[in-house]
């Protein structure tokens, strides 16, 4: 059962490839246009959900008031999200990252109370070993950071002389996690120095 095909003359080959790539290009452009808005919405929703998870109830829009800053040793810009309730600062969320994960980057969103203690932490991005390093998303691991003030809570793994309990069998992932929290804390401190009183005029 052979299908009659066009002869492989130069013109036929060039024409066939040109036609196919042209149609493919146009349809991809069209689909890209269609999905542009839903894609942006999905990304924003993910960000807002993570913010709601680490911050107390807020009435402003932290995403719109975010401050982006470059930080020494951080490849991407770090983000600083203030959460206000009627012009009172009720919390701040800061992204922090570390390149020292078992499989590359670990990125976190750390929520701070106005007094500097950690409220909650959300994992934004990680490629750790499933079943070992991925337990950093688990409640059992995260709860040791809640309500701790990094000024007095040594953000290093116990093995390195700090106060963080490592995940069983995943010290490297824990180290990266702790480093990312530390970075977020330093960013938080550097930003809060600029605004000594904790209220801000709208």
């Amino acid at each position: 059962m052979t299908v009659k095909k066009k002869a492989s003359s130069l013109f036929n080959m060039v024409f066939a490839l040109f036609a196919i790539t042209l149609i493919a290009g146009i349809s991809l452009g069209y689909v890209n246009e269609l999905t542009l808005e839903p894609k942006a919405r999905a990304r924003l929703e993910r960000k807002v959900n993570a913010l709601k998870n680490v911050l107390p109830a807020f009435t402003n829009s932290p995403v719109d008031e975010a401050v982006r800053l470059s930080w020494e040793g951080a490849p991407d810009s770090l983000e600083f999200y203030p959460a206000m309730q009627d012009s009172t600062l009720v919390g701040v969320a800061v992204t922090g990252g570390s390149e020292k994960g078992y499989n590359g980057t670990v990125r976190l969103l750390v929520g701070f109370n106005p007094d500097g203690s950690i409220r909650n932490i959300a994992v934004l991005e990680q490629k750790e070993t499933p079943g070992l390093g991925t337990k950093m998303k688990g409640e059992a691991f995260l709860k040791q950071f809640r309500e701790k003030d990094p000024a007095t809570f040594d953000l290093r793994v116990r093995k390195d002389g700090g106060q963080v309990d490592a995940l069983a069998g995943a010290t490297i992932s824990t180290r990266a996690f702790a480093e990312a929290v530390q970075q977020a804390y330093e960013v938080y401190r550097s930003q809060m120095e600029g605004r000594p009183n904790q209220t801000r005029k709208p």
Binding site: K4, K5, K6, S8, N12, L17, I20
Partner: peptide
Amino acid sequence: IKTQIPAKVRIPA
């Protein structure tokens, strides 16, 4: 499109 594709360029197509 199988009849419109010359055999020599079928893989890239």
